[in-house]
Design a protein around this nucleic acid. Structure first.
Lengths: 218, 218
DNA sequence: CGCATGATGGACTCCGAGGTCCAACTCCAC
DNA sequence: GTGGAGTTGGACCTCGGAGTCCATCATGCG
């Protein structure tokens, strides 16, 4: 993530390199703590301590806790999209989707299914109490799904997927399976349900593959 | 839900009918409020007010807020299982699954996708901060999935589903699609993603149906 | 009827979390 | 080097939410 993005919100004021670094430390500490404990259960003092800053710095860079949370929502969204872009922008084959699945499963298995998706975990906590955060999360999900559906479009255009495949719906279904899988894995403290869910979604996509014998030669 | 269930936890003490009624009012108020605002964002004073009780009554029936939340987790679990049992225990056909899907979608569309599943919404908020609540939720999900997989077993036994269909995995996938659908619907304030997710899971199950021509006559 | 136990109202305490404030410090421009 | 903006430390304030307490009322049982 670039410094510009981190420093973006509180504009119209000169900000030194030192200030940017502090803001970044705060946001990253908040990111770590709130992923594990949840947003509401994390106090500003926790963040202050973890980021080695002081109260005045928190309030120098963020108007209040809500603004910090909103900045975090955008921060995480940018991180996830950056990571996913790297994994999905060259997606052109079914095996590419399988590799993508494996990477997510492996990452989650390191935590035994705990914590789940940084975006999903905030969604249920925030969407009913902060409209701005909700719409921001919604946009991020849409962008994430678009990365997937763009890949599926490429696969359809190249003749791998049948014409009647609907990339948008397939992407939404895959995202739902992913998020639901994260949730069940979190509840069970076990990655297994996430694997099953992703495999279901991939099987569904596979059912739209053009049989290899009918594939156009490229 | 029976009174026994509501009164269960705080045992070894005689409880009058009046006491049971109060406990029930508290639990139901907590249920309503926490579904909308989230667990942590709901205060005991909110609950006290909504349930028309007093502080001493809250602490007469529950040791502390954590215990109230744990009781609520079990309460909701029992409610969901009761509702789902009614809809799933006679499941014997694919169209039964479709009816089940329609009921869930309709219920959620009344809120424009808001609030989501009472169990799922607590999961991400509680599972990292209350081990007991987490395992309770996990058990409820397992029981819920079992209602589905039992139905799928019946369908397989009667020859509707192919022998290579795995009811447990199909049920897990369906549950993940449901929960992920709830989450995306909540983020978007729109049921659409939930419909897409459930339809994907149903299509996947449909792909295991025995072709009508080969169905055994019953 | 009367006592023991359960149920209730509501004032009260305590503490922690969010938020304020200001003096001091750093850094750069001129 | 001096002034001003940006930055920092940390004491302090405030408020609201969790939890306590006790006097009073209700209820069931002998």
């Amino acid at each position: 993530m670039s410094d510009e993005q981190l420093a973006a919100p509180t504009n119209r004021r000169r900000i030194s390199q030192r200030g940017i670094a502090t803001r970044k430390r705060i946001l990253e500490a908040a990111n770590r703590l709130m992923l594990v404990r949840g947003v509401n259960a994390t106090t500003l003092d926790d963040i202050r301590e973890a980021s080695q800053t002081s109260k005045s710095q928190l309030y120098h860079h963020f108007a209040d806790k809500q603004e910090l949370v909103r900045a975090l929502v955008k921060h995480r969204g940018a991180l996830v999209l950056q990571r996913e872009r790297a994994g999905l922008e060259r997606l052109r084959s079914f095996s590419g989707l399988v590799r993508w699945r494996n990477a997510l499963v492996q990452a989650n298995s390191l935590n035994n299914g705990k914590y789940g998706c940084g975006l999903g975990s905030m969604t249920l906590e925030l969407s009913d109490q902060d409209e701005q955060a909700r719409s921001s999360l919604s946009e991020t999900f849409a962008a994430w799904e678009k990365l997937i559906s763009d890949g599926l479009h490429r696969m359809r255009d190249s003749g791998l997927l049948r014409q009647d495949a609907d990339p948008e719906k397939l992407a939404t279904g895959l995202m739902a399976a992913l998020q639901g899988g994260y949730l069940l894995a979190n509840a069970a403290h076990d990655v297994a349900p996430m694997e099953v869910a992703l495999d279901m979604a991939l099987e569904h996509i596979r059912s739209f593959l053009v049989p290899p014998s009918e594939e156009p030669t490229r």
